[in-house]
Design a protein around this nucleic acid. Sequence first.
DNA 1: ATAGGGTTAG
Length: 594
Amino acid sequence: MSVPIRNPTWVSKRRLLEQKISDLHRCSSLNQVKQIHAQVLKANLHRESFVGQKLIAAFSLCRQMTLAVNVFNQIQDPDVLLYNTLIRAHVRNSEPLLAFSVFFEMQDSGVCADNFTYPFLLKACSGKVWVRVVEMIHAQVEKMGFCLDIFVPNSLIDSYFKCGLDGVAAARKVFEVMAERDTVSWNSMIGGLVKVGELGEARRLFDEMPERDTVSWNTILDGYVKAGEMNAAFELFEKMPARNVVSWSTMVLGYSKAGDMDMARILFDKMPVKNLVPWTIMISGYAEKGLAKDAINLYNQMEEAGLKFDDGTVISILSACAVSGLLGLGKRVHASIERTRFKCSTPVSNALIDMYAKCGSLENALSIFHGMVRKDVVSWNAIIQGLAMHGHGEKALQLFSRMKGEGFVPDKVTFVGVLCACTHAGFVDEGLHYFHAMERDYGVPPEVEHYGCMVDLLGRGGRLKEAFRLVHSMPLEPNAIIWGTLLGACRMHSATGLAEEVFDRLVKSELSDSGNLSMLSNIYAAAGDWDNFANIRLRMKSTSIQKPSGGSSIEVDDEVHEFTVFDRSHPKSDRIYKTIDGLGQHINKLTTSS
DNA sequence: ATAGGGTTAG
């Protein structure tokens, strides 16, 4: 019998599968991944570590962690690479606890962590609770002698600062006891101190350090910018021995955030080298402030300069459009994305949903949402919020239950949307139900935002006493929004006496702003108390200078129309207010007749 | 280790 010749079709099939496996990370749909998984099982390749790594990563990108874990369990003696892949998958899916349980499992089975394992774990540790975990990792790397490698203490400093205030002392300690410090160690300390708002100490270290590089200068510069001290920042900026694109961008952002777009533009024009970031900062700055013409001009220039934008650019500009209702620019950005790539990334789609919803184009928001390949919690939150905002409370609640059905875990933002949906649909009892269920059934303790929603829900539902009781009994300190909401409820039900009580609290806690003042003046006006009305209006004149009042804006044909409290500067102001009054009467008629 | 970036109540 002759030696069997390999079937050429079989060989090419096998090659094709291997190619598919190594391209798994490029798969855009769950079905494709499932198909390849089936082929892997048929070819009996599912016990290979490399194949497992690829499949786990691909399933985790589709949020199919059950499938990812199944793949993992098929492999008998997982190596460190496979463990790392699963750890990273859990971290990516915001499941730090599961990531750690895999890590412990790995230790129990005697597989040693490598230099990749700890960075993945450290990435899972953000937020206050996790400082203990950084401490645990710290102890382990210390025990294994990893701390002799300067890379390790440097990243520990960074991780401790990521724990917020709880980690600051430990970060200082690591820095103090380090055998040797390099510029990165100093810069990490300065950056961390800036992040937690310890600008003074950051500056002391900056002055103390033996050798400063441009990163050191940029970091301390950012500290002054974040503190809003633009004069000090500018002084530093002029003194710097060398400036790079980061230094200039930091200054441009600072002026933009301070509302000084002219100064931001002067520096932007002067920059010797620009990359995407300063362009993004400028366009977003204009867009956020409703300066549609400037934003669009610069956007055109950026396109003409042949710059291809990345996710950061797109997200930043879209969220600025959402703030000021620049639907026109938002649509242009959307069109540019569609031209340049096949599918949007999840964060970009999320930004699009939010932009369309906030600009009032719910159909577009919904079509982006339904067309998404990989939704995440944020996608659901954004669409639930968008539907709620536009009065589709019932639809929002339907999506909430679908979200759970598809295996997504609601978070605190989801419940803000859900409660908001109940308010807008007038579902007071459902709202109370969700409010009680969120901690009990979902492990999400209510925060001040949720109490705010409840005050609004009860207040609008005419259950003013319950709203008051909730505010007085809540375990958290009520903020200006809570009192303002309560004040609004008082106005709605002409409860002048209660309103005064609320307002006293606002004044005492120095939380009164022009919005709340105008609300109180409306209450007096409605009650015919013109003396108090005049009093409040006088007060508004003096406080409105200190505190900017809230408002809304909308873009029509590249022109932005802005509206703030008591503002009648719009040329069609009379007609607008007449229309609003008409609508109000119409609504009253409908609600009293039903 | 430094600059821009998604969802949060009135």
